[in-house]
Amino acid sequence: MVNSVERFHIASFLIFVLAQNILEAEGPWFENFLYNALVVYICELMIDIIKHSFIAKFNEIKPVVYSEFLEDLCKQTLNIEAENPKKNLTFVPLAPASVVIRVLSPVYAAHLPSGPALWRLLWILILAVTSFVMLTTLKVMIGMGLRKHATWYIKRCQRRKLHSD
């Protein structure tokens, strides 16, 4: 859970940096941004691998615990009743929504056409609706991908349990 939150925060920060680059860029900046983002993610993955290795070693956690935790997350994704409902993870979207508004506001402000207030208001409305549709589509697509992965993983776990019995 903590790692997924960290990954989300890093992705949010990278989107913020991307928006700032779009506003202030002069010359080729996208390749440099991609390289830096890749370095950040690779370093984060290495840190997580080392961190979990130490945690697992010193707390004598067996690797199967991670598989059981992933199975519980997949059951939550598919709304399958869990053994312990207190373990359910929730996601509060207020902070990401604030980040999205903070990131998109200056980008849109920089690209609004000049002219009458009504014309600018129309463009603000168009950009807001377009952003909403794009974010909703992204949310639905991510949800579909998570459900597909959860279904595959639950079936895999069930096959393993059948073969091990």
Rank of each mutant, 00 (worst) to 15 (best):
42 I>A: 14
12 S>P: 00
66 Y>D: 15
77 T>Q: 10
54 F>C: 10
42 I>G: 02
77 T>S: 08
4 S>F: 12
147 R>N: 10
26 E>G: 04
53 S>D: 02
146 L>I: 07
139 K>M: 04
71 E>A: 06
90 T>E: 11
160 R>V: 07
150 A>I: 03
145 G>S: 11
97 A>H: 03
35 Y>E: 12
150 A>L: 04
92 V>F: 08
120 R>M: 05
43 C>N: 11
62 K>M: 11
139 K>A: 10
41 Y>F: 08
32 N>M: 13
105 S>L: 11
17 V>G: 03
35 Y>I: 13
36 N>A: 14
128 A>R: 05
76 Q>M: 15
140 V>R: 11
58 F>V: 15
43 C>L: 15
117 A>Y: 04
128 A>F: 14
151 T>G: 09
10 I>H: 00
20 Q>I: 06
19 A>M: 14
33 F>I: 15
157 C>F: 03
120 R>T: 06
47 I>P: 00
122 L>C: 10
14 L>M: 08
45 L>D: 09
44 E>Y: 00
102 R>P: 01
132 F>D: 00
62 K>W: 07
56 A>Q: 06
59 N>C: 14
28 P>W: 03
18 L>S: 01
86 K>L: 14
47 I>T: 09
138 L>M: 11
10 I>P: 03
78 L>Y: 03
39 V>T: 06
116 P>E: 13
128 A>P: 02
3 N>V: 09
58 F>T: 13
75 K>W: 05
148 K>E: 11
64 V>W: 02
115 G>D: 09
130 T>W: 00
123 W>R: 01
62 K>G: 05
130 T>H: 02
97 A>Q: 04
117 A>E: 15
160 R>F: 08
111 H>Y: 15
106 P>E: 09
73 L>Y: 06
61 I>D: 10
55 I>C: 08
7 R>C: 01
125 L>V: 05
149 H>S: 04
109 A>S: 15
3 N>P: 07
66 Y>S: 12
61 I>G: 12
159 R>K: 13
105 S>G: 01
148 K>F: 10
130 T>E: 06
6 E>K: 07
114 S>W: 12
94 L>S: 13
134 M>N: 08
16 F>I: 03
70 L>K: 10
75 K>F: 08
28 P>T: 03
147 R>Y: 08
163 H>T: 03
